[in-house]
Amino acid sequence: MIKKFNTHRGYYLILAGMQIVGFVLVINAGYDKTLVFSYVVLSTFFYMLWAYVHHFIHHDLSTKIVLEYMLMGVLGISVMFFFLR
């Protein structure tokens, strides 16, 4: 696990950075739920995009992986949709 983490350290750091930016934007949006949801969708989009780019670079991008990130993204958006509605 640690070995794998070290191999993909740059990737994880960029992903964490993007998520932190999304988090800061959401917190700054405060109580504007439409804006909060927009930032969550944007953040999810970049999470999926970066994952696809990463797997493409490492030559292991498959339909199954594409679908899995998509479903994880949909689940995240659904949770936030339920929470914010």
Partner: peptide, 23 residues
């Protein structure tokens, strides 16, 4: 297994959980 990285999802869902707790 040929799967996505769990760590990606953990980072993603942890941030969402933090947002819910703070909001």
């Amino acid at each position: 297994r040929i799967l996505s990285h769990n760590m990606d999802h953990i980072i993603f869902f942890s941030v969402l959980l933090l947002i819910i707790l703070l909001l």
